[in-house]
Design a protein around this nucleic acid. Sequence first.
DNA 1: CTGAAAGCGCTTACAG
DNA 2: CTGAAAGCGCTTACAG
Lengths: 345, 345
Amino acid sequence: MARNIRLEDIAREAGVSAQTVSRVINNRPDVARKTRRKVQEVIDRLGYLPNTIARSLSSQRTWMMGVVISSIDRYGPGRIFVELDKQAHALGYRLLPYISHDEETVDISRYLRELITHRPDGIIWAAMERAGHEEVLRRNLVPTSIPMVTMEALLPGIPKPAFMDQEETSEALVSHLIEQGYQHIGIITGELLSTQRGKLRINGWKKALEAAGRPITEKQIVHGAWTAETGERAMATLVEQFPEIDAVFACNDQMAQGVLSFAYQHNIRVPDDLGVVGFDDLPEAKYFTPRLTTAKQPFAEFAAITVRTLAEMIDAYLEEESYSPQETKVVYPEIVIRESSVRKT
Amino acid sequence: MARNIRLEDIAREAGVSAQTVSRVINNRPDVARKTRRKVQEVIDRLGYLPNTIARSLSSQRTWMMGVVISSIDRYGPGRIFVELDKQAHALGYRLLPYISHDEETVDISRYLRELITHRPDGIIWAAMERAGHEEVLRRNLVPTSIPMVTMEALLPGIPKPAFMDQEETSEALVSHLIEQGYQHIGIITGELLSTQRGKLRINGWKKALEAAGRPITEKQIVHGAWTAETGERAMATLVEQFPEIDAVFACNDQMAQGVLSFAYQHNIRVPDDLGVVGFDDLPEAKYFTPRLTTAKQPFAEFAAITVRTLAEMIDAYLEEESYSPQETKVVYPEIVIRESSVRKT
DNA sequence: CTGAAAGCGCTTACAG
DNA sequence: CTGAAAGCGCTTACAG
């Protein structure tokens, strides 16, 4: 097989030393214009592309950020991954994805260990919180002292540069339903109560009801699993155990779509008989039947803050300075009101 | 900063040579049980994780597959990326993603060149076809002789191990509409006719109409851009320029959702006044109002064939054998018939 | 079954 | 502004 062209080949051809070629490649200022031109000409002519592997090994820097994230074929994680990639790229980093396709069974410890063998300059922990993760990180990451930030789970000692508000936004969505005159408001949650995100959305719902002096009972709460299918099923359960229901907060848009489907199949008119709000503002949410009221999360900003902070931590680490950002910047979703929650008067 | 533990540290601590440690790490058979046990004990005790960068450099093998793909926050590319990741992981490879977030403006040449600097063992080209890509590949990839496969675009000299049928499936969807008694069938395409995929879906629609002896006119065809928004707008255009329309083939489910939204807003009953079929079978398609008839693409199989073939090409390349798979395995989407295209009798 | 030497392709001080 | 030497942390023949 044809051997790749090396830096040394360029040096020989251009009649200079390897370091000079290295300087040209890395755009160092201390090269004579004439020398630079000659070296560049040889590089272009031979189509030389430097070997990042060798560069990483000798400079002890990979310009890689590892990302541990759950299935990115869901809307939220997918958007987050894409925005992380954009931001990382803008700062000169590449992403090395570790996607836990099957969160229940994946051995996160093996994943993390394999990721560390690639010596990323930093790690973004975007996985959902799970029992045991803290221990996995303590045992495998801490000894390496690789800078890390978390986006989702709260992990002791690990900075969380940005926090996407869940509770206030949920409260605002439910308060909107109350203002529209809905009386009996149920909730379809996305998952077990064990995750932070799940808990906060429920808390928001509770707070809105409490503020309005409405009773809160267990039968108003049904757990789904983020999909349209579970949304539809959850709505069936709600109607059965809480028949007076006239509005529902589905904790994401896909589940809201399941609710709308249930309503359509059972001739329940939305928004007249049933008010519906979701969470996410999928690109399609505006085209649900009827158009869905929901909350749009600023993923780009969320990712940008996270990546920039990690980049700063990496810089500080390389300078052997201690730098551990304490603040968490809160970003707020935007409420988008559409037909599904506005009664025609 | 704390220096990482190296293979040599393990060797010294265990009282053996570096190569012996290397053998243990790589599970080579030729190590005495006792030696292996001792070395493993030291590895575990010190929490040693080998450095993949160094390994890649010396072995001239990265176990990385580069993936050039368009925005993965859309359903199709997202699913493909996830399935590629699963399959690659199963064969011991990692994915190095190069996502062209903004297909129009991204400089694919710079992307590819940067990817090559990472010396992936192989490259998966999952980007849509665009004018100029062929030239970019010829200039940058061919000299490196890195094995590559394509999933989407047809590129001369580059194997395409799997092909996802578009034409026959589209024809079957439209024939189904004809069988249901729909007379005037429009189409909303996903993009310009310049891509293979776009063309094939339109061809399928045409063939079905031709087989049924129906006329085909330009006014039956409107171009969208894969989103619900463009689907809704395209439907408005269709109704205006082709008022007798009683069924529509939307080239993906998101656009079909836009169509359903348009119908809902204008009191057009689906499926009675308008039959609708989509393409993709989003998890939500079953919960559209009404439930959507569509085609489910076997992405897992598509990705599996592609990755396995690339892995074989890499093996052959390393053995200095010439191996260039000529066959393309065709995989077929499954038609899923639901309410949106079945008239109640 | 085990080890000493060379090399993968770069960058990093250091010297001039 | 330019270069000779050493080193990054592994693996690969090769020798015994």
